[in-house]
Design a protein around this nucleic acid. Structure first.
Length: 629
RNA sequence: GCCGGAGUAGCUCAGCUGGUAGAGCAAGCGCCUUGUAAGCGCUAGGCCGGCGGUUCGAGUCCGCCCUCCGGCUCCA
C-alpha cells in the first residue's frame, strides 16, 4: 500500500503498516522524534495502522509549537501525573485527565484532602518518572474486559466511563500504570522537557454539581524548557494588563468590601463610561431606538407574570416597604418594565417595530464565589433594548442588531465571537415555531456575513439567541452582547397590537444588549488596550508640564485653548522635576504630554506621545492632528 | 454554593519556630527652581479583615464569619 506525504510524494509500505512504521521507513531520526500523526487535519496515534492512499503528516519534537503536538505531549504528561498520584496516595481514585488550552488537568478523588503544598511532592515524583523514562503501549480491549479490570482496581469513575464510552475501548500503559484512553499518546516520555503543576481546584464529576466534587490538578508541559519560561513570562505580563490591577492604578474605579460586586467609579472612569453612554445614545438615535426609563423596583406580581420569580428568584434582591404589605424586588433585567410600557397604550402594527432602549441599573445577587472585578458584578448596567415586532420583521431586526454590534466592536478594534444557541429540550412552543425563529436568526447571520458557532440546545426556553463573546487577558471567555428572540413574555403580559386585518396579535420581542453590560465591557476594554486608550477614549487626553513656575501662566493659557477646542487636558503644576512629571504621565498612559518652557511658544510645542515619541509642532499643527484622531 | 489559597499603612510588600509592627512608593511640610521615565530632607500614617477561643502574652496557633485570588458550578 501507499501513503501520501506532505510534499505529495508517495511512500510504499507493507499492508497493515502503522504511522510508526511510516516514520521508520523514512528515517531512524524521524522515527525517534515522531510524536504524532496528522491526516487531513485529524490526529492519529502513531501506533495505529494506516490506510492505503492516506495522506499523512508526521509531527515530531521539532513541531514544538504545533497545537496538536503540544496536546499529545500534555495528554501524556497528564498520565504521568496520574501515575505519580497513584503511587503517592494509596486509595486515590482516578477520573479523567485531558489536555486543555495551555496545559492539562487530571481529576482525582483523594481519600484525604490535599493542598497546594502537595503539588511540589507530586511534581517531584513526576520528575522521577521522567528521569527513569516511560514508554506508552496501546492495547484494545473489550468493554467487558475493561470494566472487569477497573472494577478489580476499585475505580468507579473509570467503570462509568467504560460504560458510557462509544466505539473502541483502548488502554494506554506506561510503567505499571494503565489508563482508559482514546489517545493519541507520545511513544515515550523523552520529548517531555518541561513540566509544571500550576493549580489545584475542586471540579464536579462530569461537570454536574449534583455529583461528587473531585480534586482537579492543573499542569502544563512543553517540548522545550525555554517555552515554559516564556509561557510563565506571558502569564506575568497578562497579569499586568488585568483590569483589576489597571483600573485602580489608572484611577478609573475601585471595588470595596462595603458593596461587593459594585464598582465605585472615579472621575476618570466616568469619562470612559460617559463616552460609551454618549456613543450608545447617539447611535441608538440614528437607528430608530426610543430611549425610555423604567422603574428599578416592581412588586412581586410583576415578576410572577414575567416568569422571573419562578426562574430567577435566587438571583434577585427583595425589599420591604416601610408601610404596607407589598414586597418589592429590584429589577434584574429591563424586560418587565418594557413590557409594561408597551402594554400601557393601544399599539398599532404601523408603530412596529418599536424599539425601547434603556441603560438603567440592574441588580443581580450573584452566587458567592462568582464575582470577578468588573467582569462579573452585582450592579449591572446594560446597553439594553427591546424591539417589539411582527414575525415578518424578525429577520431584519436581528440583522440590524448584528450590523450595529459589528459597527460597535469594529470601533474598538475588537473581534467578538458569535454563537447561535438553538432550541433546548425544555422549551415552550412548537417545533414549527422554532424552525421559523432559528431560520430567521441563521439567515440574518448569513446575510451579515458573520461566522458563528452553533450551540445546539443552548437556547433559552422561550427562544433561540445569538451571543457575542470576548476573551479576557487570561484567556477566559465572557459573554458580552446577546440577542434573544422571545415570543413568550409578550404573551405573559397580554401584549397585543392591532394588525392590518383589524385583529389583535401578540408581538414578538427581541431582547438585546450589544456591548452587554457597561461594567463588563469597560473591563474588557481596559484589558484590550492594556490601559492605553485611544485618544478619543482616554480620560485625560493631554497634559501640559510647565518647566518652571515662570511658565505656569503660559502653560495654563495653552491648556485653555485646547480645552476650548473640546479636549480633556490637565496642567501638572506640581513642584517636581520635569523628569518626574514625565514619568507620571507615562505611568498614567496619557496620550500627549506637552513640556512647556522657555523654548516653547504657539509656533513650537514640544510634544511627547506615549512611549517617548517626541516631536515639535505648532499649536495649529497639533490641533489639526488631534482633529483627525 | 463547592475545592484550594490569601487578607499587615492609601499602594506594593517584609515580619523565622508566639514576646505589644517595618521598608519603598504615595501623602503633608521644608529645601531645590526643575527640559523628556523617580532631586534631597523631615513628618505623619496601623483595631495586622471581623468575632470568638487557646496562652502570662496572639499579626503569628485554633474555630466561625466577611472579602479577595485560582478553579468548578451557575450566569433563564
Amino acid at each position: 500500500m501507499k501513503v501520501v506525504l506532505p510534499d505529495s510524494s508517495e511512500l510504499e509500505l507493507p499492508d497493515g503498516a502503522t504511522g510508526r512504521d511510516a516514520a521508520a521507513a523514512i528515517g531512524p531520526r524521524l522515527a525517534e522524534q515522531a510524536v504524532l500523526l496528522r491526516s487531513d487535519g485529524r490526529v492519529q496515534d502513531l501506533r495505529l495502522p494506516l490506510e492505503d492512499g492516506q495522506k499523512i503528516q508526521i509531527l515530531t519534537t521539532r513541531d514544538k509549537d504545533d497545537p496538536d503536538a503540544l496536546s499529545v505531549l500534555r495528554h501524556s504528561t497528564a498520565h504521568l501525573l496520574a501515575e505519580a498520584v497513584r503511587r503517592l496516595y494509596p486509595g486515590v481514585k482516578i477520573a479523567i485527565g485531558p489536555p486543555i488550552a495551555n496545559g492539562f488537568y487530571y481529576d482525582f478523588e483523594f481519600p484525604e484532602p490535599i493542598s497546594e503544598a502537595d503539588l511540589e511532592r507530586i511534581e517531584a515524583e513526576m520528575q522521577k518518572e521522567l528521569a527513569e523514562g516511560r514508554e506508552w503501549n496501546r492495547e484494545e480491549v473489550s468493554r467487558e474486559e475493561a470494566r472487569r479490570r477497573f472494577e478489580a482496581e476499585g475505580e468507579p469513575y473509570k467503570v462509568e466511563l467504560v460504560e458510557t464510552a462509544d466505539g473502541e475501548i483502548s488502554f494506554y500503559t506506561q510503567g505499571d500504570f494503565t489508563d482508559l484512553c482514546r489517545g493519541p499518546h507520545l511513544q515515550n516520555s523523552k520529548p517531555i522537557k518541561a513540566v509544571k503543576l500550576t493549580g489545584l481546584a475542586g471540579a464536579y464529576w462530569r461537570g454536574d454539581e449534583r455529583n461528587k466534587q473531585l480534586t482537579r490538578i492543573y499542569g502544563t508541559a512543553f517540548y522545550d524548557p525555554a517555552d515554559l519560561d516564556a509561557y510563565l513570562e506571558r502569564l506575568e505580563q497578562a497579569r499586568e494588563r488585568d483590569h483589576r490591577r489597571l483600573g485602580p492604578q489608572l484611577d478609573l474605579f475601585h471595588l470595596s468590601d462595603e458593596s461587593p460586586g459594585s464598582p465605585f467609579w472615579h472621575p476618570k472612569g466616568m469619562v470612559i463610561w460617559n463616552v460609551l453612554e454618549d456613543l450608545r445614545r447617539s447611535e441608538n438615535a440614528k437607528r430608530g431606538y426610543l430611549e425610555v426609563k423604567t422603574p428599578l423596583l416592581y412588586d412581586i406580581d410583576t415578576y410572577i407574570t414575567s416568569g422571573h420569580y419562578e426562574n430567577y428568584e435566587e438571583n434577585m434582591f427583595f425589599v420591604e416597604e416601610h408601610e404596607g404589605e407589598k414586597r418589592l424586588a429590584l429589577k434584574p433585567m429591563n424586560c418587565p418594565g418594557h413590557m409594561l410600557l408597551f402594554g400601557s397604550e393601544l399599539r398599532s402594527y404601523r408603530e412596529l417595530p418599536m424599539r425601547f432602549a434603556e441603560s438603567s441599573t440592574l441588580h443581580r445577587d450573584e452566587r458567592g464565589g462568582t464575582l470577578h472585578g468588573l467582569l462579573r458584578v452585582k450592579h449591572i448596567t446594560q446597553d439594553d433594548a427591546h424591539m417589539f415586532c411582527t414575525p415578518e420583521q424578525i429577520e431584519d431586526e436581528i440583522f440590524g442588531c448584528l450590523d450595529y454590534a459589528s459597527y460597535l466592536y469594529d470601533l474598538f478594534g475588537m473581534e467578538a465571537r458569535f454563537e447561535l444557541s438553538t432550541r433546548p429540550e425544555k422549551k415552550l412552543g412548537t417545533d414549527e415555531e422554532w424552525d421559523f425563529t432559528e431560520a430567521a436568526l441563521r439567515s440574518a447571520l448569513d446575510r451579515r456575513g458573520i461566522d458563528y458557532q452553533v450551540n445546539e440546545g443552548d437556547g433559552a426556553f422561550y427562544g433561540p439567541k445569538i451571543d457575542l463573546h470576548m476573551t479576557d487577558v487570561l484567556g477566559r471567555s465572557w459573554q458580552m452582547g446577546t440577542i434573544q428572540l422571545d415570543s413568550q413574555m409578550p404573551a405573559r403580559f397580554g401584549l397585543t397590537y392591532m394588525g392590518s386585518d383589524n385583529a389583535e396579535h401578540t408581538p414578538f420581542v427581541i431582547h438585546r444588549a450589544l456591548l452587554g453590560s457597561l461594567e463588563r465591557f469597560i473591563g474588557i476594554l481596559i484589558e484590550h488596550y492594556g490601559g492605553e486608550f485611544p485618544f478619543w477614549l482616554a480620560p485625560v487626553q493631554l497634559r501640559v508640564l510647565p518647566v518652571g513656575a515662570d511658565h505656569r501662566e503660559a502653560a495654563g493659557r495653552l491648556a485653555e485653548r485646547l480645552r476650548e477646542a473640546g479636549y480633556r487636558i490637565e496642567v501638572d503644576e506640581r513642584d517636581d522635576t520635569v523628569g518626574k512629571r514625565i514619568r507620571d504621565a507615562e505611568l498614567e498612559k496619557i496620550p500627549y504630554t506637552l513640556v512647556y518652557g522657555d523654548k516653547e511658544s504657539d509656533d513650537s510645542l514640544a510634544i511627547r506621545e506615549r512611549h517617548g515619541v517626541q516631536s515639535t509642532k505648532s499649536l495649529l499643527e497639533l490641533l489639526d492632528e488631534l482633529a483627525r484622531l
